Simulated assay, not measured.
Amino acid sequence: MGVVETLAARNQRFVESEFDAGLRMKPKLATIVICCADTRVDPAVVLGAAQGEIMAIRNIGGRVTPRTLDELFMLRAIAQAVDDDIDSTWELVVMQHTQCGITRIESRPELLAPYFEVPEDELGRVLVNDPYGAVARDMSVLRADSRLEGAGVSGLVYDVATGRVQAVAGR
Results as ranks from 00 to 15, higher is better:
residue 44 A to W: 14
residue 105 I to L: 06
residue 51 Q to M: 09
residue 150 G to W: 05
residue 51 Q to T: 05
residue 18 E to F: 14
residue 82 V to T: 06
residue 152 G to Q: 07
residue 67 R to E: 10
residue 42 D to N: 10
residue 84 D to M: 10
residue 2 G to A: 01
residue 64 V to E: 10
residue 126 V to T: 09
residue 140 S to M: 07
residue 15 V to H: 07
residue 67 R to Y: 11
residue 48 G to E: 00
residue 48 G to D: 03
residue 67 R to N: 13
residue 107 S to G: 09
residue 84 D to I: 02
residue 40 R to T: 07
residue 63 R to Q: 08
residue 166 Q to M: 06
residue 110 E to Q: 10
residue 167 A to N: 06
residue 50 A to I: 06
residue 111 L to E: 04
residue 46 V to N: 02
residue 88 S to P: 03
residue 38 D to K: 03
residue 165 V to A: 02
residue 63 R to S: 15
residue 136 A to I: 11
residue 115 Y to R: 02
residue 84 D to R: 01
residue 151 A to L: 04
residue 21 A to E: 01
residue 47 L to D: 01
residue 19 F to M: 12
residue 46 V to A: 07
residue 109 P to C: 09
residue 8 A to V: 14
residue 105 I to H: 00
residue 81 A to Q: 11
residue 24 R to P: 14
residue 71 E to T: 07
residue 94 V to F: 06
residue 21 A to I: 10
residue 4 V to Q: 15
residue 95 M to V: 09
residue 78 I to A: 08
residue 49 A to W: 00
residue 75 L to M: 06
residue 146 S to Q: 08
residue 164 R to C: 11
residue 154 S to H: 09
residue 161 A to R: 14
residue 147 R to A: 07
residue 155 G to H: 06
residue 28 K to D: 14
residue 91 E to A: 14
residue 32 I to C: 12
residue 70 D to P: 02
residue 33 V to W: 00
residue 74 M to P: 04
residue 156 L to S: 00
residue 2 G to L: 04
residue 151 A to F: 02
residue 86 I to C: 04
residue 27 P to R: 11
residue 105 I to M: 10
residue 50 A to T: 02
residue 28 K to R: 15
residue 146 S to M: 11
residue 96 Q to R: 08
residue 151 A to S: 13
